[in-house]
Design a protein around this nucleic acid. Structure first.
Lengths: 222, 222
DNA sequence: GTCTATAACTAGATAGAC
DNA sequence: GTCTATCTAGTTATAGAC
C-alpha cells in the first residue's frame, strides 16, 4: 500500500501513522503494525521520533497546528479588513471553521480518515500529553477569538463567551469524530452530506448559540 | 480505600472500576490495578464478568442506560401532559439534559469522576463495542426526541433536526469530558461554576441552535 | 466463590552488526 | 540510516487447589 517508494523512512512513517491512527486510535496501533505498513524497520520509529509517543506528538502537531495557525491568521486578516470596527460574528465563525475545511482539502489521506484523526487529537489524548506547541497555539486561539467575539457581542461577558466557544468546539469535535457513528445510529433517516454542508449546519447552529441572550437563571429539570 | 467491606466482590469491582475508568480511561486501567483497588483477586474479573471487556460493558451500561431510559420516560410524561399539543422546545431539552443532572446527584462517586466517566462512555469506546442494550436505548432516543422536536419545530425537516440533535449531543459530551481541560487552557479567565449552571448555559446554547432558521446555502470560508 | 500460580501473548525499547 | 535479534515488562486469561 506504500505508493511513495521514494519517500524517506521518516516521511513514510508519518504517512502510515496518519492513516492508522485515524482508523484505530493512537493507543491501539502497535509499532509493529505501523512500521510494517510504512515498509520500514521496527527500530525506525525510535530512531526518527525517539519513541512511539514522539511519533504520536509529531502527527498531532502536524495536524492541529496548521489549523490553529490558519485560524489566527484568518482572524487577524479579518480584523485588519474591519479597520477597527468589530468583526461580524459570521466572519469570526468562518475564521474558526474555514481552516478545518481547508485542511481537509489539502490533506493527502482520505477525507473520512482526516476527520477521524482530527477528532482523535482532541479526544484520545489527555490534555497534558499534547505537545507544547499545540497547547500554546490553542491557548492563543482561546485568547484571540473570545476577544473578537466580545467586541461583536458586547452584551455577553467574556466568561460566557468563553463557555460558548467551548460548546462550539464541542460541536466541531463531535462532528469530526462521531458523525459516522451518528449516521449509523440514525438508520436511513439522514443521508451523508458533503463536509461543506455539515459545516454549514454547524455554522448556523453555533451562530445561533453564540448570539443567544445571556443566561440568567433558567435551569429546571423536567 | 475500600470503604465497603461488606460488599460482594462483584459490587466492589464495579465500584472500583467506575472510579478508575473515569480517572484514566478504560484501556489504560489494567486488571491488576483494578482488582487491587477493589480488594479482590485478579481472577475475579473473569469470574464475574467473563473478561475485562465484560466489565467495561457492565460499567457503561450501568451508566448510560439509566440516563437514556430516564430521558425517554421524561419525554413520555411531558407528551402526556401536553395532551396532544406539541411539547415546548425548552421542555424537550429539559427531558434530554435533566436526567444527566439527576444521574450525577444519585451517583456514588465524585461529581468530577462521574462527568469524566459519562464522557468517556461516548468517547473512548468505538460505537461497535458498546453493549447492545446501550445501542438500542440510544437508538430509541434518536427516534423519539427528533419526533417531538419536529412537532415543536415544524419548519425544520426531520433530517435537519437529527443533525442539530447530533450537535447538541456533541456539546453535552464535550462539556462532560473536556471541561476540566478547557478550564485549564482558559487560565484564570473562567471560574468553575456548579454543574447546574453549566447545564443551564448548555441549554441556552442548544435551544438557540435548535431554533435557528433552516440552513439554505450559506457556506463561505473567510 | 475465591484464591495462587502461571500460561500465552504482546507491547515498546535497544544493543550492536552492517 | 537501517537492519536483526533480543530484552524487559506489561497485558489478559485460565487451570486447578481450597
Amino acid at each position: 500500500m506504500t505508493n511513495d517508494q521514494d519517500a524517506s523512512a521518516k516521511f513514510a512513517l508519518l504517512q502510515a501513522a496518519q492513516a492508522l491512527f485515524a482508523e484505530e486510535g493512537f493507543e491501539k496501533v502497535s509499532m509493529r503494525t505501523l512500521t510494517q505498513k510504512a515498509g520500514v524497520n521496527l527500530a525506525a520509529v525510535n530512531y526518527h521520533f525517539g519513541s512511539k509517543q514522539g511519533l504520536i506528538e509529531a502527527v498531532i502537531a502536524g495536524y492541529i497546528n496548521p489549523v490553529n495557525q490558519a485560524r489566527l491568521k484568518a482572524l487577524e486578516s479579518a480584523e485588519g479588513a474591519a479597520e477597527g470596527r468589530p468583526v461580524a460574528l459570521e466572519t469570526i465563525l468562518d475564521c474558526f471553521l474555514g481552516p478545518v475545511l481547508e485542511a481537509v482539502r489539502k490533506s493527502e489521506i482520505a477525507e473520512k480518515l482526516f476527520f477521524q484523526l482530527l477528532g482523535r487529537c482532541m479526544v484520545d489524548q489527555s490534555l497534558s500529553s499534547l505537545p507544547d506547541s499545540v497547547m500554546e497555539t490553542f491557548q492563543q486561539v482561546l485568547i484571540r477569538f473570545p476577544q473578537a467575539l466580545h467586541r461583536s457581542l458586547p452584551e455577553l461577558s467574556e466568561e460566557e463567551i468563553l463557555w460558548r466557544l467551548h460548546f462550539s468546539i464541542g460541536v466541531l469535535v463531535h462532528v469530526l469524530s462521531r458523525t459516522e457513528g451518528f449516521l449509523h445510529l440514525a438508520g436511513g433517516r439522514v443521508g451523508k452530506p458533503a463536509f461543506e454542508e455539515i459545516l454549514a449546519m454547524v455554522r448556523t447552529f453555533c451562530r445561533a448559540g453564540l448570539m443567544s441572550p445571556a443566561v440568567k437563571e433558567t435551569v429546571e429539570a423536567s
